[in-house]
Design a protein around this nucleic acid. Structure first.
Length: 193
DNA sequence: CGTTAGATTTCCT
DNA sequence: GGAAATCTAACGT
């Protein structure tokens, strides 16, 4: 978990760049940490699959706020999913963190996800990742540039071979190539290869 | 191993 | 009222 905390300027960029550049970084929460191996970009314009396409509501407010904050929502009535906001304040855009390679706090993660036999199953999907890392809607809006819930640079930078495909599990704007993952990572979700 | 159905709640129309 | 950025167990092959 070495490396500097990613600064606000990292997130204040086009959502697609942020999604791609988050691969290989460390997500840290409490005593748990993992390398981000899979992300998806949800855009503010021209993307009707994004929650922010409905405009500013109680749920989507943070997506329009300053970059580098947590957007956590409930999916299918039972799973929480974790996103990081991007773009300048006033502009929508966020990155769904879909999968992690666990590197610290594995025992805690296993306690939260007793069904995961192999460590590769602890966080290889957005719902599983939030569960393993202890991320809930109570963390909605949290600033990810300070405190015990942050993203850190890798030192040295990890080499990443990035693959791009359409996003998973959506029906609208389903053809846009906005999913990024580390090719050959056994920790990416099962749709990967 | 692949495919499918059901769980369960929030949110927007 | 209905669709939803998912997961797991149960079934068939």
């Amino acid at each position: 978990m070495k490396g500097r905390i990613l600064p606000r300027s990292f997130y204040a960029r086009p959502t697609v760049e942020v999604a791609r550049d988050l691969l290989g970084k460390y997500l840290v929460h409490g005593g748990c940490a993992g390398v981000i191996v899979e992300t998806e970009a949800y855009l503010g314009t021209g993307d009707i699959a994004a929650h922010s396409a409905a405009g500013i509501t109680d749920r989507t407010r943070v997506i329009f706020g300053p970059p580098g904050h947590a957007y956590v929502y409930l999916s299918y009535g039972m799973h929480e999913c974790f996103n990081i906001t991007a773009e300048q304040e006033g502009e929508a855009g966020c990155v769904l963190i879909r999968a992690l390679e666990p590197v610290a706090g594995l025992d805690t993660m296993r306690t939260r996800r007793p069904g995961a036999i192999h460590s590769r199953d602890l966080a290889n999907g957005p719902g599983k990742l939030a569960k393993a890392m202890g991320i809930t809607r109570g963390l909605y809006g949290r600033d990810l540039t300070r405190g015990d819930f942050v993203v850190r640079d890798a030192t040295p930078q990890l080499p990443v071979d990035i693959a791009v495909t359409p996003r998973i599990g959506i029906t609208k704007s389903a053809d846009l190539p906005l999913r990024f993952f580390i090719r050959n990572s056994p920790y990416a979700s099962r749709h990967s290869q």
